[in-house]
Write a protein that binds this DNA or RNA. Sequence first.
DNA 1: CGTCTATTTGAATGTACTCAAAAGCGGTGG
DNA 2: CCACCGCTTTTGAGTACATTCAAATAGACG
Lengths: 195, 195
Amino acid sequence: MEPSPILLNIRKHIDLTTVEEDYFISLLKEKTVQRKEQLIKEGEACTYINFVQQGALRAFYVDHKDNENVIMFAIRDWWITDMHSFANEKPAMLNIDALEESIILQLHKKDLDQLFNKVPKFERFFRILMQNAYVREQLRIVANLSMPAADRYDNFLKKYPQFAQRVPLKQIASYLGITPEFLSLLRKRTSKRIS
Amino acid sequence: MEPSPILLNIRKHIDLTTVEEDYFISLLKEKTVQRKEQLIKEGEACTYINFVQQGALRAFYVDHKDNENVIMFAIRDWWITDMHSFANEKPAMLNIDALEESIILQLHKKDLDQLFNKVPKFERFFRILMQNAYVREQLRIVANLSMPAADRYDNFLKKYPQFAQRVPLKQIASYLGITPEFLSLLRKRTSKRIS
DNA sequence: CGTCTATTTGAATGTACTCAAAAGCGGTGG
DNA sequence: CCACCGCTTTTGAGTACATTCAAATAGACG
């Protein structure tokens, strides 16, 4: 039998017994999210952390000028939630919706807390997950501070080719912190430079 | 007897026995860092995570144009390291130096790994530490994407008044992703607006 | 007091944005 | 199967935000 993608994801960092794996799997709720369907809305409680089995989602922040600022993308094998809201049980600041029809596995905060107590190895798993997320965000800040938009786009294409293929340019522009019009201009320039 | 600041820091998130606390303390090396002394240099291995007992430090990244981009500040009660280098045992990408004479407590990677195995509660502590760091960096990205420089500066002053008092404007400008000249201009503008 | 670095000031420039409009593209219904 | 609709992407003109470079001023430290 094929092991589920989420178990492969977890086995990257910790070893579990079959019993532990079964217990973990029993905590998960599978959910299908339609394109444009909102999984998490700003202001609501965000009680689930989500593992993407299939599809593509985005997290974004709506600022005071009603601009959507894309914070992260998530495709197969990524975890996504509003971590601040999830961990501290505060209203969500972020919105999360599906860029295409997606299948996710949801783990509830209270189940995760129990899991931590019953199987402490999961503390390690989530420590590593948070560590990697922290480092990733720090690298993104470095990129934003030290590179002009054109270089950030090149960098994005190199680093996340999977995203580049599936995500509309408009969303990528937002992720990079530029307008879609400007991204379009940048793309025209580089294509000229190449040809 | 006064409990040490680092124990107070840890007790915010986990409960330890006296034996565990003593064991933890025994792993720490105290170190004094002079103003401008470099604690971590790009390219070298970064084998310590550092808790600031006194003083102020900064982490920065030197880009291909030799600009120093400030990634974070750390004062009393903050932890600082090049997390990517520390966790994955890679050469450091960041530099860390002291903005003023500082006293830090250093915990070695191999001691931390042992600590995790002997006292698994520390997995939880560092999970929460990483979680908070992740959320903080994400909020910073939101701020960078959605606000003009003037608002980011106001935001910084509100959020980190402790830093604003101790850190040179040049360093704050770098942290905000602007030039010191432009920050100076912004300050002149706001002071006019107030008076 | 002199030196070194941080901060301010100003002019010229560049990067990225806004607004408006056209072109492209995928889906849906007739 | 084509025509139309809605949304994304492109184009262009005018503008605003932020940078560079150069130089003056102010502050900190030995």
